[in-house]
């Protein structure tokens, strides 16, 4: 796996774009999901994820191979999402009104779960509540929480991605968890 990525990166650094398509394929889910949880809507998440990949490609020569490539990519995506959050105007996308239905397709494609309609509605509502709780977090807590629980990364990796001391990462996770608990703990 690591070898695969390293080889592709060498090829990309020589200018081979086809090798980059494989890298995008490999990481698109994770990067998209990170952006989605940071930004809270599909439209912006797609834009941010695309931009993250384009930036990574353009700056591939500055990538330092002592860092995991995924960490570097997450760093770009996180910074970009935070930038977008700061610039974000309270504009509403049409599809946001029916955000719940996005989950509907996801769920309806999972026959193994055999959820009753009530359960589905409930879990859809829950999904939305969870996302709203994440969106209420200040961005510095939001990024650590997303990296920790959505991307399932270690504290060490998070500290590398955000370029913060581990102690700070821990404190932010603790505070983020407490803040989330206020919205989700009573459910």
């Amino acid at each position: 796996m690591d070898m695969f990525v390293k080889k592709r990166i060498k090829a990309i650094q020589k200018g081979d774009q086809n090798a980059y398509a494989e890298i995008v394929e490999l990481y698109k889910d994770k990067v998209y999901r990170l952006c989605y949880r940071m930004l809270g809507n599909r439209h912006e998440a797609e834009d941010a994820a695309q931009e993250a990949f384009i930036r990574a490609y353009v700056n591939i020569d500055t990538y330092n191979p002592t860092m995991k490539f995924s960490s570097w990519l997450y760093r770009i995506a996180t910074n970009l999402s935070i930038d977008k959050l700061r610039k974000k105007k309270p504009d509403v996308y049409l599809d946001e009104e029916v955000r719940g239905t996005e989950g509907l397709t996801v769920y309806s494609q999972l026959p193994a779960k055999e959820a009753s309609p009530e359960d589905t509605v409930e879990s859809l509502e829950l999904q939305e509540t969870v996302q709203q709780a994440i969106e209420k977090l200040p961005e510095k807590y939001r990024s650590v929480i997303v990296l920790k629980y959505i991307e399932d990364l270690s504290l060490q990796e998070i500290s590398e991605i955000l370029d913060l001391p581990i102690g700070t990462v821990k404190t932010r996770i603790h505070r983020g968890r407490e803040a989330l608990r206020k919205h989700l703990g009573h459910l």
Binding site: Y32, R33, R37, S123, I150, L180, R181, L184, H186
Partner: peptide
Amino acid sequence: SLKKTVAFIQHASHLAPPSDFT
């Protein structure tokens, strides 16, 4: 309630990017 919160966040369903993303 903290443990429950963590479980909720961890089990947030993951959305996939559109198929023409790459």
